[in-house]
Nucleic acid binder design. Structure first.
Length: 248
DNA sequence: AAGCGCGACAACCGCACATAG
DNA sequence: CCTATGTGCGGTTGTCGCGCT
């Protein structure tokens, strides 16, 4: 159990920033538990980590969001939901906190909240809009997706974070799918891929091979990334073929 | 000038996951 | 298999500054 009695909170001073920066220059990122001990900073490890990741880390873009960034953010949010870290991973120099704050400030109040998701996946028609609901489990590692935490065994209350999130696309969104997925990725589908998994593996491979999108958080073994692509591909299939199958 | 509302964003909190032992 | 520890994420809160009345 972590005890943070007397730990300083609130805004960081320049001196604290300087100390933290030096510590990470010497020891590198990670091992945040050691940071307060090494630096003597009267801050909890979480606070140190957050300060570094959201503010002190080099190459963070602290400028105003450009039009193209906002556009991409909107599209990615439609695709991924509140997956701020993934969205930020596609916006060079932006942090998840930046993206989240920007979204909450500029778009949250303007959003129309979709109806409660249903399980299993259902499809509804709203006028000329096709609403596709896809169950999106909290994307963690594959092995843990269906495991039950020890602490939950005797208290199996539904976890907020596991609540599925609906994804809705209008049919004219297909243009964007074409722009997001590279031509050769689209070809994967045209050439006969019929499942989300098929497309996912191909898209991941293409993504890495082409290096068209620089993203240090995008790893082949990152299940969350794969999941995003899985749903991206699945929804794409739904739109174009109407026969997407989520293979788990 | 003072008070108020609100936007922007930094920071905190709680929870879930990964993994080592 | 279980527990403890370390880490990461998303939601929420706190604070500050600015504009309006």
């Amino acid at each position: 159990m972590e005890v943070n009695v007397g730990v300083r909170k609130g805004a960081w001073t320049e001196e604290e920033d300087s100390i933290l920066r030096k510590c990470i220059e010497i020891h590198g990122e990670g091992n945040w538990y050691q940071v307060p001990l090494r630096t003597g900073l009267n801050r909890c490890r979480k606070s140190c980590r957050l300060r570094w990741l959201n503010y002190l880390k080099p190459n963070i873009n602290r400028g105003v969001f450009q039009e193209d960034e906002v556009d991409l953010m909107l599209r990615l949010h439609k695709l991924l939901g509140n997956r701020w870290s993934l969205i930020a991973g596609r916006l060079p120099g932006r942090t998840a906190n930046d993206v989240k704050n920007y979204w909450n400030t500029h778009f949250k109040k303007k959003m129309v909240v979709p109806s409660e998701p249903m399980y299993p996946r259902e499809k509804h028609n709203y006028g000329n809009m096709v609403k596709i609901q896809v169950i999106k489990p909290r994307p963690r590692t594959f092995s843990s997706r269906f495991s039950i935490r020890h602490s939950d065994k005797f208290n199996p209350t539904p976890m907020k974070s596991y609540r599925p999130q609906p994804v809705a696309y209008s049919e004219n969104e297909t243009n964007w799918w074409e722009s997001l997925l590279l031509d050769n990725q689209l070809a994967i589908v045209e050439e006969g891929a019929t499942t989300g998994a098929d497309i996912t593996s191909s898209v991941v491979a293409e993504d890495h091979a082409s290096e068209t999108v620089a993203n240090e958080n995008w790893h082949v073994n990152d299940w969350s990334a794969n999941t995003s692509l899985d749903h991206m591909a699945l929804n794409w299939l739904e739109l174009f073929h109407g026969n997407g199958e989520l293979i788990i």
